[in-house]
Design a protein around this nucleic acid. Structure first.
Lengths: 188, 188
DNA sequence: GGCTATAAAGGACATATATCACGTATTTGG
DNA sequence: CCAAATACGTGATATATGTCCTTTATAGCC
């Protein structure tokens, strides 16, 4: 059952069964294994993924080889390299599975086609992107204004489940601090 | 002439004269003076502003009274407290003029009405928001991965004009460092 | 079941950045 | 044009965080 997607869309706009069928016909489904790489730096990005289950991360590896996590995605979340996907440029991010994942994915072409064919979906994507922007702006504010501890507590309240599922080193990478610093924050 | 707005829209979608008239009819215009406050923390936010000229900042004042700048806006840019505007919640940010400003503004109601009446504008706002999200994600990456100097140089290349127009203390606030630290970065 | 890779904690030290203080230039507003 | 406010740089510290290293625990794999 991929009703998770329908549920998310209907939080923004109601759909008839026929409309939802049309939506679904623009997606394909694919499963991935833990540790599997989905998007590789330098390659073109054809799909955006909607997670039915599992956990992924999107990250950037800097020239010194250090990984910085831009985003986690769990059930109901979307993930891709947005710049590469929307602008058709080579990926600067990579996306990997932290657990076995069950996903739906949509190409940019199908996404645009769906928006043209079903206005409700253009509305949905507009609203969803706006909500994403607002949330990312909040994270930006935490990054420029808060101490590492603030950011940790912010993440803790926003995604409490995450801490049981991913190693602390990845949490640290998301917060923009080292593993050791995070370890001292949580202990003290 | 407020053709700046038309030019921005037409970078994404072409408009007929009649369509542009319809767009403009949903906006009003207003001028502000330097130092004038546009959005105050705690109050409701009715408008999003499009700058025809001038310079504004959107910032957050934390409990200790320190200001952190989320966004600058110059000609062709849009500015508001997005969360407060879209969710109709009290503002957590404030917006102020750093120079005399000439603006067009649109209420949320008119924005939604315009999207319903003119599909091209729903398309425009969807694309614009996506582009904003991509850019903010890039800034986020700089914040978690880069040193203060990296962020400074990034801002310098992205908005070279800014440095002649705003005091260094505000640049520092945008970068998430103190005035003194920025001063040492640029000197050394 | 045992081996290996990964995860986590913490000590010792290095570095980046913040804080506080001061002097001087520059801008602003009447 | 003058007085006051603001902007800018810089020194002396304090603090937060990074880096490197060792130890122990845990999880995954053949």
């Amino acid at each position: 059952m991929s009703n998770i997607l329908r549920k998310q869309i209907e939080q923004i706009v109601p759909l008839t069964d026929e409309e939802y069928e049309l939506v679904l016909s623009h997606f394909s489904s694919i499963k991935f294994k833990k540790h599997q790489n989905i998007i590789r730096e330098g390659e073109y990005v054809h799909n955006e993924y909607f997670l039915l289950s599992g956990l992924m991360k999107a990250s950037h590896i800097n020239p010194e080889g250090k990984e910085h996590i831009i985003q986690f995605a769990m059930q109901e979340w979307w993930i891709t390299d947005p710049k590469a996907y929307h602008d058709k440029t080579p990926a600067k991010l990579q996306v990997d599975c932290l657990e076995d994942c069950d996903t739906l994915f949509i190409t940019l072409e199908n996404r645009e086609k769906l928006c043209r064919e079903l206005r409700k979906m253009e509305y949905f994507f507009r609203k969803k992107t706006t909500a994403d922007l607002i949330e990312l702006q909040h994270r930006t504010l935490c990054l420029i204004s808060g101490t590492a501890k603030d950011r940790y507590e912010n993440l803790l309240t926003q995604y409490p489940g995450l801490f049981q599922r991913v190693p602390k080193s990845l949490i640290a990478s998301y917060l923009g601090v080292t593993r050791e610093t995070l370890s001292r924050l949580t202990g003290a």
